[in-house]
């Protein structure tokens, strides 16, 4: 699946995550994750993993993802990534 435009899903609210996606001209998956230090230190890798798995599951190869996390659980991250990608194709 090809990302054709910028789109976003989710919200910058407690327990949610704001996912912004856009095409990646340079190719590949580029991921920027922003959250509180206390979350990044303990769950940063896990959050990145969930985002990447969802991207791969949807068959997207080239994408820029910016994620602003506010303590979202894995299921929310999955849903928001999928919604953002579906809106961007």
């Amino acid at each position: 699946m090809k990302i054709t435009k910028a789109a976003q899903a989710g919200a910058s609210e407690s327990s949610d995550i704001l996912i912004m996606v856009m095409p990646n001209e340079e190719g590949g998956i580029k991921l920027e994750l922003d959250s509180k230090g206390v979350i990044l230190k303990q769950f940063g890798k896990q959050i990145e993993k969930v985002i990447r798995e969802k991207i791969e599951e949807m068959g997207v190869q080239d994408i820029v993802v910016k994620a602003k996390d506010k303590g979202a659980l894995d299921y929310t991250i999955r849903a928001r990534v999928q919604a953002a990608i579906e809106r961007a194709i």
Partner: peptide, 11 residues
């Protein structure tokens, strides 16, 4: 609507 539907499904 699309985002909420996905969120509920994942939940």
């Amino acid at each position: 609507k699309d985002s909420a539907r996905l969120l509920v499904k994942e939940a």
